[in-house]
Structures are given as C-alpha cells and as structure tokens.
Design a protein around this nucleic acid. Structure first.
Length: 929
RNA sequence: GGGCCUAUAGCUCAGUUGGCUAGAGCGCGCCCCUGAUAAGGGCGAGGUCGGUGGUUCGAGUCCACCUAGGCCCA
C-alpha cells in the first residue's frame, strides 16, 4: 500500500460536485467585479460587428422558462460570436408601457377614489421599473452577460421621442390614417376594454330569427310568386339597426324552402334544426344552391332605406343559427373584417354611453341595454320576426363594473398596408424585403409571409393612459386634425426633453412653436389626442431607437432571436416600421425558436400544474444545467422540459464536469516549457490531438449552421467516448506510474493540456460558469487569460491532423472491442476481474496482422491488459479475420502499477514490483537524493 | 375552422437526393474496479420509425387522410 505514495495521482482544486447554486453567483460576482462585459467591449472595438438586437420582454412579472430559454440562446450566440472574433455589444431591453401593466396598477386602486392619468402613469412606471430590476437580476443569474447597467427601456424619453419621429415619417408618407374599428366597450364606464379586461360569464340573451326579404330573383324562383326571405339568427337584436349585410358560408349548400305562402333561405344542413326551432309548417325544398350564386343580391332592411347585401364569409358555421349571419361592421370584429373585404359601410349607431344615436332613427336615445325588447317587438310589428326565445351563453362582461360589454366601432389610427401602387405598398415592400432575410429555420419565412399577406391594416391607437401619445392635435375651432411636420417635431422635442408625461400635463401652446396656428382655419386653440400608441408600435421601433441611437450599435441588426409568436408580433412590427421609414428590413437574419412545453409536449400552465420555474432550476440544479438543457434541445420546434429531462441533463453535466476535472487533476505539476513536440509524442497522444482537430472542426461547423444542439452532442460524445472511456482510461497507467518527469508522462500531459484548453473554450459559451471555474483552476502559469470568455474560439490546426495514424488506431479499436467482448466472457466465467489480470492472445489475418505487429509494444496499454500476444490466424480453422482469446496473465501482480509481469520478484530491492516500476522507483530515489 | 410546424428506443438527438438486419449518448440491467470514488470501466437488453391507406422492385425518408401536440389567427 505504501507504493501508492510513489504514484502521480491527480490533484485538483476543481471539485467533483459542482454545487452550482452556490458557486455560480460567486463566479457572476467575479465577472461583475472584473467588469467582464466592459472588458469584452473594449477588446472588441474595431473588430467586425455582430449585432444581436434584443427583443424586449414585457416588464410584468418574473421571468418564466420561455424568457429564460430565449435569453440563454441569445447569450450563447453572443458568447460564441465574441470568441469567433466579432464585436458583439449586447443591450438588453424591456417593454415597459401597455395595458397589462396599467390593468395591474388600476386593479389595485380604490375604485371610489378618483385618480388622474398622470398619477396612474407614475404608478405604472414604478411597477414597470420594479420588474425591470427583478428580471435583470434573474437574467444575470442565468449567466447572461450584457449591458445591464444601461438597458434600453421603452419609457426612456429619447426612446419615446423616437416613436414620434417614426410616426412623423409614416404620417408624412401618407401611411397613417384615421378610421374606425369596433372594440369592446363598456357603456357603463364609458371606456374601451382590452381582451384581458373581459370576464366571460353566462348571460341570458334573446335568440331571434329575422326575415330579410330578398329583393332580387333567384334563378328559377321569382319573388313575385311567393316572397323569398333570407333568415338570419342573432342574439343581439340591438345591432340590427346597424346591419348592412348577410354573410353565407362558401362551404355548404343552401336551400330555398317553401312554407305556407313564403319561401325561406337557410343552410341546408341546418334545415331540420331550424324547422324545430321556428316551427315551420309543411316545409318543401324548392331548390338547393351554393351560396356563391347569391352573392351581391340585396335584401330589404327592417328599418333602413339601404338594403342589406349578401356576402360570403368563411367563419359562418353550422353550430348555431341558420347559416345566414347578420353583419354589422360597426359592432363586431368579424363583421368589421367582412366589411373591409367587401368595402361595406359601417354604421355605428351607439354613443359612448351606450345610447342609440340619430343614425338609429326612431330608436335614437334608447340605451342598448333596454333596446332589445323594443326592437324585437318592432320587428314583430313589421312582420319580419320569425321566432323569438332566449338563450344562455358565455358573454363578455366588464372586469370593473361587471356589466355586459358591447362591441362598438370607434375612431382609431391605422397604418395602411396597401396604400401605394407598383409594389410600393407596405405589404408588398415587406413581402419582398423578407426574401432577402435569412430565416432560421428556413421554413419560417412561409409563416412570416402568410401572416403578412393576410394581416389587416395595423391599428396603432389605444384608449389608454400608460403609453406614448399619438401626436395629433385638434383645432378647437374647426375641429380638424392637425398633424404637420412642424407640430410633430415640436412634440418630438417635448418628449425627448422631458418625457411623454408632459404631453398629458402641458397645454399645446406651451410646446408648439411661437405663432403656430391651425393650418385649416388659423385658430390658436388646440386640444390633444387622447389615444396612445399600441405597444407593438413602440417595440417595433426599437431598431431605430436603439440600434441607431446607441453609438456602439449598428443598424440593421445581424440577427433577431425570438419565439415563434413574434412572427405576428415583434418581427412584424419591427419590419413594418422599418419598411415604412427606410424601405429596408431592420434585420438580416431572424432565428425563431419554439415554445417550452412539458415532457408530454403539452404547454405549461398553472392549471395543469406542469410549470417549471427557471429560478427554481437555478437554485436547485444551477444555471449551467439549465443552459445545457436549453442548448441540448432542438429549438426549431417545441422544447420539452421535465424533471426527468433535467435529471438527464444534470447527469450529462456531471460527466462533462468530471472529464474536465480529471484533465485538470493531471496537470497539477505541468509547467510551461515542458510541452513535448508533436513528433516526440506518443502515438496515442498524437492521435487524440488529431481527433481534437475533428472535434473543433465539427463543432464549429455545427455552431456556424446554428445547430447548437448538435454541437453540444459532439462535445458530450467527445468527453464520454473519446476521452473518458477510451483515452483517459488508457492514460491512467502512464500518468500515474511513469516517472514524474518521464517523456511518456509529459507527452500525456502535453496532450491533456492541449485538449483541455480546446474543450473549455468550446464549452465556454454554453456552460459559461463551469468553463470559467475550470479555467481558473488551471495552474497559474498555464492560464493565458483572466477569463475563459476572453479566449478566442479554437481553430483547426491542419498540421496536427494525422490521417494515417487515425486510420491505424481506429482499426485497432475494432480489435480492442473484440478483446473486451472476450474479457467480459472471462469475467462471467469468474476467471477474471480487472482487465489487467488478462493476457490477450490475438489471432489475426490481414488487414489486422501487420498493423497489430507494428503496434505490438503499445497494445497492452491500449487494451489495458497486462500482456498481448499477436499470432497469425490459423486460416484452416477460422473464418473470421480476427479472434481474441483471453487467458490469465503471466507472472505476478505488480504492487505498484497492478500490471502482471513475469519480472515481478526479479529485483531484490523491490520484490513486489515489475521492471517498469523498478526503474520508476530508481528514478524517484535519484530525484529525491 | 384556417395558416405554419412537430411526432424515430424511457430521455435528448442522428438518420444525405427513398435502398444492406434503423444509429448515438444518457438512463436501465448485469458485471468489473476501488489509485477520477456521491467517481471510473466493460458487456447487454430496449424502437419497425404516431396511425391508416397509397406511389414504388423497395419508404422512417414521397403523397393523401387521420390522431396527438405547439405557435398564430378565427
């Protein structure tokens, strides 16, 4: 046992247990202290730039796995590109305005106390800032490196002002117009409501069937013979005064049914149900036809002189009603879109308080809440009511006053998608611009272009408090809008100087230029637009507000990296503002990743209870485990996570960590200047260095093609297969038992040192903390830098590739495998424990024989057995090219190296040792004396 | 309901333009070692490729439909 002390066993300060939850924050503190980000920026200046422009997460709540995943991906890209020699400033950003924050804030207010817009805005700002801080800390905990001291915030005055500047450019190009669009409206509170402010509850509504008499003849049926009516069904009779059309489905047949003296038109598949509902007598189908043949025909409107026109809409279904849908574009989302499609008028007959306007004729003044029965009885009086009952269904209610809400068209601001000709419209220019963008994965361009194709004009106004104002003034005298270069620049200046709060507190005269008058009537009295900008507009201008404004950045961005929901969101809003102003894309490349789902592929939700929290994972397992998980998955589709997956990832992490630890541990006594020249290295060592070139080459190409999960696979395989189970296992004997300063041991250490450096550099972008910790654990003089993140990415050294050697050794690997199968059999027979107890008798033909012979001396080391004997194959009896027989090794077990040797006992001084160990002991005593 | 996408061993992934008995690592089982030790090594067992039908001499790999799931829209 005392011989153990004469061995060179590994010594390392790098512990086997990562204890990441504790150690990572320490490493991060060190990065902060050494100002690693700033250091990287300074060193990067002057290099080619690679700009990843951060999409701003919403400053509401803590980060979740989706945001964590996104940031990790970005961080890996930036760390990688930095090592590749690019200058990669990374400015994280936050989206701070918007309805969800305002809603959270307002929810906490005492509803009985009046509060001003400016007070709400103050509270919103504080709320947003709180979460910016929290999220920043959470992102840093993931190991994300960036300019967190100077992030971009959409509430910064300069950022806000940029909105006005972009609005100005678009407005002056004629791309912004004022129109109308239906929105959810609470008549009781007199406010617009967002989807999140609706509470769906059961509500009793009327259910009525109404005749719209057809004014045109159907082919083969004349209205003169018997009156023909299209039957509609609705649960909102009060919207009937605003009816302009009836929509039919293009997907199923319609019938004309005779009943008594009348003919009704309804969807054929619904006929039976309708018969039950309205009690038709002796119905008889006169004719079946496609909806297409009715399009454009006119029907009489119950009250209006204008008729109702028949159109097609694919949202018409067979679930309820008659297949003939009453369309009031001023009072329904789908109705509105159909109205746009067919260029229909959109009468809006209800005012802010929910009362009918003059447009509603005799119903003027009536509140919609009370209107339904009045309208129903009027319909009955007019003889167009076919049936009436009531229905209980889910209906939206105001979150605040709990009253049912209505849908109501209100004035809104829009960006026109189709204005301009000869391919100059926003839609066309955007569609052509995205063809020049690199989409990762490639198919995502399809998604993007189909969304661009179908999107309606962009409604950029919101009836809210927490945001950037729409910079429009109205003349108090003539009532006209005032939007001019001059007024816009004055507003932009105001906001740039003092922030957008001032819009709400200051009088227009205080910020408009001296002598500014209404361009229409010359008046000097103005009022301000109340609406604010859609937050998508705000985040959509980030490329201007950040890339253009910040000195270290550049427009356009090299890459945007976001989840697949951003095809409709940020990718699109950014593209549109950019196309509108510059005619160019703001990004050269767009990488999209999927959504994080659970182990079953289901989305994460609190109600299912499958939510995994990234901060928890950091606290329990460590950020590097999360980073390893993130990078191990294929981001192009859904990204699964579960406790099992994390457990597997942790195991994989441990394997990498231990491999690194072993390498480090055997370098404790390695010094600069002790490196062995390649030509003097042992073949096995040169072989591994040669293989390392392939590792570098493969990983680099995988990273370059954005296949990060392949790259980490390659790295893990290298650690487990090439290193741990093969090379390092073989190396132990030499590292431990050879004399400390022998060329054999130094050859091994040279290889290990070389491989470790490459390994840590490759691992650095991914397991950023572990790579750093390991790098800093190197003996002082072996460190070439203060941080692994300051190292360059490894490059392939062609001179170190030895193709012939690789081929030879890989051939020998096959023999090694054959030998191990035999060794295993011997173990099962109980004749063998350690492989060192074995003597391998190899019988080989070509191509193995010469190869084995040429390598005969190294074979015991390579096979980790005590003796190897190479014989030519007894070709009479054997069919295989190679056969291995395992027998017990000759001689006795050496107490020091555990190899078996006939020479054990030959030396009187060291009767328990083999010849190698005897000389090792001699060397040791020489060096000691 | 529509658009885009996904579905290969328990887990994460490979499987070029359709062509030998579908691969890897991890995990698992058994075994060895105890000088990487809450480590290390060996051997081995697991999929017929979500389902159905089709094209083809031949399909995981092309087509259609279905099922499950994701994002976006309705």
């Amino acid at each position: 046992m005392e011989y153990k002390d004469t061995l060179n066993l590994p010594q390392a300060s790098f512990p086997m247990k990562g204890n990441l939850p504790k150690r990572e924050p320490e490493i991060q503190a060190k990065w902060e202290e050494m100002k690693l980000y700033q250091l990287l920026q300074e060193r990067g200046r002057g290099r080619p730039e690679f700009i990843l422009h951060d999409g701003p997460p919403y400053a509401n709540g803590d980060i979740h796995l989706g945001t964590a995943y996104n940031k990790i991906l970005k961080d890996v890209i930036i760390k990688y590109k930095t090592m590749r020699g690019f200058y990669c400033p990374y400015v994280p950003g936050w989206d701070c305005h918007g309805q969800p924050i305002e809603h959270e804030v307002v929810k906490r207010l005492d509803p009985s106390t009046a509060i001003s817009k400016i007070e709400i805005r103050e509270k919103c700002r504080a709320y947003a800032m709180k979460f910016v801080e929290r999220q920043a800390a959470q992102f840093k905990r993931l190991g994300v490196l960036g300019d967190f001291d100077n992030p971009y915030l959409t509430v910064n005055p300069a950022y806000e002002a940029c909105n006005i500047s972009v609005f100005k450019e678009l407005y002056l190009k004629g791309l912004i117009y004022k129109g109308r669009k239906p929105i959810h409206w609470c008549a009781t509170c007199g406010t617009a409501l967002a989807e999140a402010e609706l509470e769906y509850k059961d509500e009793d509504s009327p259910s009525i069937y109404v005749k719209f008499p057809l004014l045109d003849n159907l082919p083969g049926l004349s209205v003169v013979e018997k009156p023909i009516s299209v039957i509609i069904w609705t649960t909102t009779p009060w919207t009937l005064p605003a009816n302009v059309a009836i929509a039919l489905s293009p997907d199923f047949p319609y019938v004309a049914v005779e009943t008594g003296e009348e003919v009704f038109i309804v969807a054929k598949p619904l006929l039976e149900r309708i018969e039950d509902e309205i009690g038709l007598e002796h119905p008889r189908i006169l004719k079946t036809f496609e909806a297409k043949s009715l399009v454009g025909m006119k029907c009489g409107h119950p009250w209006s002189e204008d008729s109702s026109i028949i159109v097609l809409a694919d949202y018409v279904t067979l679930e309820q009603g008659t297949g003939c849908v009453h369309i009031a574009p001023g009072h329904g989302e789908e109705d509105y879109l159909t109205g746009l499609e067919y260029n229909l008028p959109s009468p809006m007959v209800v005012d802010d308080q929910g009362c009918f306007t003059e447009e509603a004729g005799s119903f003027a003044g009536l509140n919609v809440e009370e209107a339904n029965p009045v309208i129903v009885s009027d319909l009955e009086k007019r003889g167009v009511l076919v049936a009436s009952s009531s229905i209980t269904h889910q209906y939206p209610h105001c979150w605040r006053c709990k009253k049912p809400v209505i849908f109501r068209a209100t004035p809104q601001w829009f960006i026109a998608m189709d204005k301009g000709d000869n391919g100059n419209s926003l839609r066309e220019m955007a569609t052509s611009a995205i063809r020049k963008v690199e989409w990762i994965p490639e198919w995502t361009i399809n998604r993007m272009s189909s969304m661009l194709e179908t999107r309606p004009d962009w409604c950029i106004s919101r009836q809210r408090s927490w945001g950037v104002p729409i910079p429009v003034l109205y003349c108090m005298k003539c009532g006209k809008e005032i939007v001019s270069q001059e007024s816009l620049e004055a507003i932009e200046e105001l906001i740039r100087r003092e922030g957008s709060d001032n819009w709400f507190t200051k009088e227009p005269s205080s910020f408009l230029p001296e002598g500014f008058t209404c361009p229409h009537c010359g008046s000097t009295e103005f009022e301000k637009e109340n609406d604010i900008l859609d937050v998508w507009f705000e985040s959509g201008i980030s490329h201007f507000a950040v890339l253009r404004e910040r000195e270290e950045l550049n427009w356009p961005a090299d890459i945007y990296v976001e989840g697949s929901d951003q095809h409709r969101g940020w990718f699109q809003s950014s593209l549109l503002t950019s196309i509108g102003v510059e005619g160019l894309s703001p990004f050269e490349r767009v990488m999209t990743h999927g959504f994080v789902v659970d182990g079953e592929g289901k989305k994460m939700s609190k109600s299912i209870g499958n939510v995994i929290n990234p901060t928890d994972v950091c606290d329990r397992r460590g950020a590097d485990v999360l980073r390893l998980w993130a990078i191990s998955t294929n981001y192009s589709t859904d990204i699964p996570i579960s406790e099992e997956i994390l457990a597997r990832t942790t195991e994989s992490y441990r394997r990498i960590r231990n491999t690194i630890r072993f390498l480090l541990g055997n370098l404790y006594d390695f010094k600069l200047g002790e490196e062995v020249e390649p030509e003097n290295m042992r073949e096995i060592d040169r072989w591994m260095i040669s293989r390392t070139q392939h590792l570098i080459s493969l990983v680099t190409s995988q990273m370059e093609s954005w296949q990060f999960h392949q790259a980490i696979r390659t790295l893990v395989l290298f650690c487990t297969v090439d290193l741990s189970s093969l090379y390092l296992d073989i190396l132990k004997d030499r590292l431990y038992t050879a004399p400390k300063h022998s060329s054999g041991r130094k050859s091994a250490q040279t290889a290990i040192y070389y491989i470790l450096k490459k390994l840590l550099a490759i691992a650095a972008p991914i397991i950023a903390h572990t790579a750093e910790e390991a790098y800093l654990s190197l003996p002082e003089e072996l460190k070439e830098s203060e941080s692994v993140h300051l190292l360059p990415w490894p490059e392939v050294d062609e001179g170190l590739i030895d193709k012939a050697l690789e081929e030879r050794l890989e051939k020998l690997l096959e023999v090694r495998e054959a030998a191990y199968r035999e060794i295993e059999l011997a173990r099962k027979n109980g004749t063998l424990g350690s492989s060192l107890e074995a003597r391998a008798k190899i019988f080989a033909d070509e191509p193995y024989f010469d190869l084995l012979k040429s390598f005969e001396k190294e074979l015991p080391e390579f096979f980790i057995v005590s003796q190897v004997e190479v014989n030519s194959m007894d070709s009479v009896n054997d069919k295989e090219e190679i056969r291995v027989e395992i027998e017990t090794a000759d001689g006795k077990k050496c107490s020091r190296c555990w190899n078996y040797s006939a020479a054990v006992g030959a030396d009187e001084r060291y009767p328990e040792l083999c010849e190698r160990c005897v000389s090792a002991m001699e060397a040791l005593s020489r060096s000691e004396s």
